[in-house]
Simulated assay, not measured.
Amino acid sequence: MYEKILVATDGSPLSDKAVSHAMDLAKLTGASLIALKVIPRYPRSYLEGGATVELSEIKRIEAQWTEQAQAVLDKIKADGKAVGVKVKTSIAKSDLIAESIIAAADKQNADLIIMASHGRKGIKRLLLGSETQHVLTHSQVPVLVLR
């Protein structure tokens, strides 16, 4: 049924639930798992929502975010190994999270995208946006959303 399942994670408890379901589904179907973490770029100017910070400090912060992302992905890879699921990991650096998830699924020829939804409603959803909603409406790959 599925050969490659992409699971998007942000390292949150809700995202961990999506990873767990993705792992179970991959094991059940014999699929490999692609674990993706998208990390944003640090705002480089006041107009982008960030304070003016030295370039060396920005690089240090971005390196720290990458290191934290890799730790999340390494845990997923170890969990996969423990249950016999082949896991490939990927970090995307972009402010366009939904587009990065869709692009990774296309590039990796994923059969399914699994991700969590934080379930925001009303004004919070309007103000904060919904990466999950964007993936649902723009992906050509089927999407399984967990809450």
Rank of each mutant, 00 (worst) to 15 (best):
S56Q: 12
G50H: 03
Y46A: 12
V38L: 04
V72A: 02
K59W: 01
V38W: 03
G50E: 04
V38R: 05
G80Q: 04
A63E: 15
L73R: 01
K75Q: 15
P40W: 01
A71Q: 14
R44I: 05
K75C: 09
L55N: 11
A35I: 06
E48C: 10
K77R: 15
A71R: 14
G50W: 01
R44A: 03
A35Q: 04
E62Y: 02
W65D: 13
K77F: 01
R41W: 02
I58A: 04
P43W: 01
V72Q: 05
R60E: 15
I61E: 08
W65G: 10
R44C: 01
G49K: 06
P43M: 05
Q64S: 14
R44Q: 06
T52F: 11
Y46C: 00
L55A: 14
E62K: 00
D79P: 08
A78F: 07
K59L: 13
T66I: 00
Y42I: 11
L55M: 11
Q68T: 09
E48R: 04
E57Q: 13
V72R: 03
R41G: 05
K59C: 07
A63P: 13
E57N: 10
Q64M: 12
D74K: 08
W65L: 12
A78R: 14
Y46D: 05
I34W: 01
S56I: 10
K37M: 13
P43E: 07
E57V: 14
E57K: 12
R44W: 00
R60G: 07
A69C: 07
V72Y: 02
A69P: 02
L55S: 14
S45D: 08
Y46P: 03
S56E: 15
G80D: 06
Y46H: 10
Q70A: 10
S56F: 09
A51N: 09
I76W: 03
G49Q: 10
I76S: 03
L47F: 14
G80K: 02
Q64K: 15
S45K: 03
A35E: 05
G50F: 02
K59V: 09
D79A: 10
G50Y: 02
K59D: 15
I58K: 05
P40L: 03
Y42K: 00
I61T: 12
D74Y: 05
I76P: 04
L47Q: 12
Q70P: 00
A51V: 11
V38C: 06
A78G: 11
I39M: 05
A71P: 07
R41P: 00
T52C: 06
A35L: 07
A71W: 02
S56Y: 09
Q70I: 09
L73P: 06
E67A: 15
T52E: 15
Y42F: 14
A69N: 02
L73N: 04
L47M: 12
T52W: 09
A69V: 07
D79N: 13
V72G: 02
V53C: 06
I39Y: 01
A51H: 08
V53L: 13
Y42S: 01
T52I: 15
D79T: 09
W65Q: 13
K75H: 11
A63G: 11
I61R: 08
Q68L: 09
S56R: 13
G80M: 03
A35D: 08
